[in-house]
């Protein structure tokens, strides 16, 4: 319309208003960022799997990325939207548990403890 000005930018593209982001949005952002960081770190891990901090970082990032993916897949298959926050917290708990379980099983903590 001629008499109107440009829209106020959406909060996601406005760093100042990140405080008002909802949990589901954070989850999405974390998934995107974890993918980018993984893409950079993973080749180094493959080249030298004995770098302890890198091993843990890759494990944590894979879990972060995977848990959000799981959330989307469950949503795709009809997980009730009214429980989406609960699903997010549940998957976060599963992720933390998986991090420690896999960390011990795969000896990823070796070198730290």
């Amino acid at each position: 319309m001629e008499s109107s000005g440009p829209p106020v930018p959406s909060s996601v593209w406005n760093v100042a208003s990140w405080r008002s982001m909802y949990p589901g949005m954070w989850s999405w952002v974390v998934q995107r960022l974890s993918a980018v960081v993984l893409l950079i770190l993973f080749p180094f891990h493959v080249l030298n799997p004995y770098i302890a901090w890198l091993r843990l970082a890759v494990l944590a990032l894979v879990i972060l990325h995977g848990m959000h993916g799981l959330k989307v897949i469950l949503t795709d298959f009809g997980f009730p939207a009214r429980h989406q926050r609960r699903l997010l917290w549940a998957l976060a708990a599963v992720g933390v548990a998986a991090f420690f379980a896999l960390g011990f099983l795969r000896r990823a903590f070796w070198g730290f403890i």
């Binding site: 949005m25 989850s27 949503t75 989406q84």
Partner: peptide
């Protein structure tokens, strides 16, 4: 992208995401 922003915000409790 199933971010659920609309679901969180809708004052009528509708989930457009669903």
């Amino acid at each position: 992208h199933s971010q659920f922003n609309c679901t969180e915000a809708c004052p009528k409790g509708i989930s457009p995401t669903a």
